[in-house]
Design a protein around this nucleic acid. Structure first.
Lengths: 200, 200
DNA sequence: ACCTGAACACCGTTCAAGT
DNA sequence: ACCTGAACACCGTTCAAGT
């Protein structure tokens, strides 16, 4: 039988090998699949092999968090980098990205782990703060006064987190809802400083 | 030594005894404390005793969900029952309730369980829908057009869920932020039907 | 009807021993 | 340096047997 690809030969497994495989499992099969025993059987090694690279499961989770947050930040930067688009379109792109992203399971797992792991918590916190900054800034470009931009951005970011956590009976927003949201944000335009709000 | 209260004598444990104790544990010590072995040692019985009342852990979780959602719905009704207050004050009360409630750990656990348990999911969904309805209705009383009320209510409810899931680097809203939010909602007044929006 | 006791499966963790 | 193998602790689940 031909070698099945993976580690049919026995070159050593790096820490990144473990982390990459774990993240893949997390995305494909959910948090329940992220188990040391599962990883070992995937790689065809025994558990001692895992413990050579990591202190325990927690360390692996921290590594997963770092890897995923880096990826996530990069894709957010890409969206924001579309500075060519006018602010409202950028917001719409981000919203759509949040709504139909299938990365939720990862985000949920990370927030869960963050509650018992300071490292994971901090990694996630940075990503959250980054996103908050992007949204706030975009809203200000849109014409919202700084105060309102801050409140609205908080609302939007928290909503996106909540959205990742509840298929629970709430209406799943469709394109129309996104339009409604954008209209709502757009109307905020002109609330800044001394400008006159257009009366329609 | 005097009998320590609990089940020093051996009257049978009802299903509700198990559920009540489990919910208490969930609130006091978090989801990690909700274990069959822990409950048994608390009650001073063996595991077989648990399996006489429940099929498995899942069944217990479903029972916990039902119990907690009923409680939660009741306290929401109390808030909404303050119809004496004007709508904005009702919203403020709900917001404050959501923000400093220490029932988050319960809510998080339930949403987690809901992902692998249809029963829990449905129980939670009803509670969510109930809350959504309350907020939407209150916003309409406040003067928002139905469309906007729907979008805004969705945003608010999702934000409250997200809020329960992320101490993560986002600014924790203080009284000032709540004021800002209320001002934002209040300005929505008069957007209804053919009315003229007041130009300040 | 309600519970004990002993067994089992599964998973994380440790560690001496191998190459 | 990198991994095996066997052991252990912990937890959920089952089931025959007790009262």
């Amino acid at each position: 039988m031909a070698p099945s690809g993976q580690s049919a030969d026995h070159r050593p497994l790096s820490a990144d090998d473990w982390t990459t495989r774990a993240l893949t499992l997390l995305m494909d099969e959910g948090v329940a699949a992220v188990k040391i025993s599962r990883l070992c059987s995937d790689f065809g090694v025994t558990k001692g092999s895992f413990y050579w690279r990591f202190d325990d499961l927690e360390s692996l989770k921290e590594a997963i968090a770092v890897k995923w947050c880096a990826q996530s930040k990069r894709s957010l930067e890409d969206m924001a980098g579309l500075a060519a688009l006018e602010p409202l379109e950028r917001l719409r792109a981000m919203t759509r990205g949040v709504v139909n992203d299938r990365m939720w399971s990862v985000q949920r797992a990370l927030r869960d782990w963050a509650r018992s792991d300071e490292q994971v918590a901090e990694t996630l916190a940075q990503t959250d703060a980054f996103m908050f900054g992007l949204v706030q800034q975009t809203l200000e470009e849109l014409g919202s006064a700084p105060d309102r931009a801050r409140t609205l951005a908080g609302l939007l970011v928290y909503a996106s987190i909540g959205f990742a956590h509840g298929p629970s009976g709430l209406p799943q927003p469709d394109e129309g809802d996104i339009d409604g949201l954008m209209r709502l944000l757009a109307e905020d335009r002109g609330t800044r400083g001394g400008d006159q709000p257009p009366a329609t």
